[in-house]
Design a protein around this nucleic acid. Structure first.
Lengths: 163, 163
DNA sequence: CCGTTAAGTTATCCTAGCCTAACTTTTTTT
DNA sequence: AAAAAAAGTTAGGCTAGGATAACTTAACGG
């Protein structure tokens, strides 16, 4: 589906989607600032997206996604979000770093990995209960921060999820 | 350290390292086959690595890493391995897919994420005991395969690592 | 020891994706 | 309503990293 788009094209599509969503509109200038490129780069990238029927753009006007473009953008953004949540909420990567990594990694994940990552995030966010951190994750985070082994290692009575 | 090497240069370096290790030698042909590129591409990539003092290469002869090149290659490969183990052993991504994903992802991970990923892999491989799968991971794998919630959700007595 | 084949090399070309400079259109200010 | 500023566009250039075609060197079998 998104497979015939280059990484950079995907970035542009996602940027248009996000800007339209957050600011109410997307323009060449916007997109350029968001992706930290110059305006002519945006213009030529958009030409590609227009040829593929993903974006419409009247001369000197706003950028809009076609419905197909929006579908795609959502899929791309979802990938980004899952990665971000994994990095930030589970691994504990700092927010800005996680954001930047997600941006780059999102282009290189296979569908199978994406699917399993989604499940993994869902698993940790859903069990034991939404908004509670699972014990094993607490233990990991402590281990990551201090090197401290999970307590049940010295607790042969079991029942801590680590046996 | 590896930061002034392009992604592609890193791939070439890693390939030389692996081939030298596995086959006992690395040659242009080898590397080309391994990376699925043509020989001239290898030759020009190697020129870059030679200029950086990472590879030595006598005309029409074998490719060898300098000690600095080997350091770097090891670091790159370590990153690859960590990713692979996470994808394959923890998420459960199929071996070939995990291998391919690791190849691509290894270039896009920040040092912080790498470090945390290393700890995460270490955490799951070390606790409760080497060569035993932690309970929470069992539960995740079951959840991923069947959608089945971990049993302790219905078990309010706690003690399963999910409270 | 010579010819064939395989490996390595060189020259040259191509594309993607960025850039700057210069120009046009639109919007805003006065 | 004209000038100035801001946004958009076009033309053209550059680099990285691939490719092909044609050539050179090395290796090996008869």
């Amino acid at each position: 589906m998104a497979s015939n788009l280059s990484h950079s094209a995907q970035d542009y599509l996602e940027a248009i989607f996000l800007l339209a969503d957050r600011e109410g509109f997307a323009r060449v200038k916007n997109v350029a600032d968001h992706l930290d490129v110059k305006k002519p780069s945006v213009v030529s990238a958009i030409k590609v997206l227009m040829k593929k029927g993903l974006v419409v753009h009247q001369h000197y006007g706003c950028l809009e996604l076609t419905s197909e473009g929006e579908e795609l953008a959502k899929e791309i953004h979802r990938r980004h979000q899952v990665l971000f949540r994994f990095l930030n909420h589970i691994l504990g990567v700092r927010t800005e770093v996680a954001e930047a990594d997600a941006c780059r990694l999102e282009h290189h994940i296979s569908p199978q990995t994406l699917e399993l990552l989604i499940k993994f995030v869902e698993f940790t966010e859903t069990f034991p209960e939404r908004d509670k951190t699972p014990k094993w994750l607490d233990y990991f985070q402590k281990f990551a921060a201090t090197g401290e082994a999970p307590p049940c290692l010295n607790d042969t009575s079991g029942g801590c999820g680590f046996k």
